[in-house]
Design a binder for these strands. Sequence first.
DNA 1: AATTTATGTTAATGAGGCTGACATATCTTC
DNA 2: GAAGATATGTCAGCCTCATTAACATAAATT
Lengths: 163, 163
Amino acid sequence: MSRQTGPKAGKPEPLATPMEDTDIIDFEIIELFFFAYRDFVSDPDAILEKSGFGRAHHRVVHFVNRNPGMTVADLLETLKITKQSLARVLKQLIDSGYIRQVAGPEDRRQRKLYPTKSGRELALALAEPQSRRIERAFEGASAEVRESVKAFLSGMRDRQKAD
Amino acid sequence: MSRQTGPKAGKPEPLATPMEDTDIIDFEIIELFFFAYRDFVSDPDAILEKSGFGRAHHRVVHFVNRNPGMTVADLLETLKITKQSLARVLKQLIDSGYIRQVAGPEDRRQRKLYPTKSGRELALALAEPQSRRIERAFEGASAEVRESVKAFLSGMRDRQKAD
DNA sequence: AATTTATGTTAATGAGGCTGACATATCTTC
DNA sequence: GAAGATATGTCAGCCTCATTAACATAAATT
């Protein structure tokens, strides 16, 4: 006797059929994206935990290395977090000697952010396994395929709001 | 007078040159992937906060809908989290009537997980904006391009450990 | 009968977000 | 020059979602 007693049973019946791709919903790519990102961030996570840092530190180190001289406001805009959230992480990176602040030459209220030498090294060390993973995922792919993937990833972003 | 006083200055000099793509490091795709995922999860996040749920609930609802009858152990393996982390989230989803548990027909220690009708509806509602975003990113792409992107995302995953 | 397995539960901890409120220095505007 | 706006920093408290550790229970296996 299973519980398949029909719609008369007191409790709502559980649904046994899997949710499949439909005309409108592409579950396959949703899942691929989830797994890809989960594993993509696991490499740097493993490196970071040795220094007592986390994912948040990684993001800050990455963007400051990519855009030296960016301000705190720039970073908040990029990461889409609040300044209170950033503060703790940024303070730790500055105290640990990975990032330095310099007052803006024009506007002295600004704090322009720069990596130190060890900050640059950390960013490279974190990017290295991620880059190897990307290379592996592209194994033998043509330049056209690489461009298609970049176009796809770029298309996944929010369109910037007109201000 | 800048601080460009050369290597003799007391403190380590900040590095002003941006970190560019090299032969070995592909920063461009690393960043594209970060932004794409950040925005990809922002759609369901906005829906979930209305019901007081979070990202963790989304993941559970999604996978139970995709694989009805999966066990708690299956889910832990898929999400790569601990059972204590899963417990709270799963309990809330069961109490709210989105997921049901049924003792395994062969092994009665198992709890097989199924979506209810409203659980199915929730999963679809969460997937819908993500799927629209994917469609937008693929706008006018050929079937070959879609396959290439899927192959790329799939290649980004960890290789499964042989047991 | 003893052990292993699948699951559940409780308690303490930590990372990394959030809001709100307020402080300070500096730039802009009247 | 005073007033206001802006960029940043800081304090306090809260939330979600993850962690480890320890223990409980029921059911399967040996």
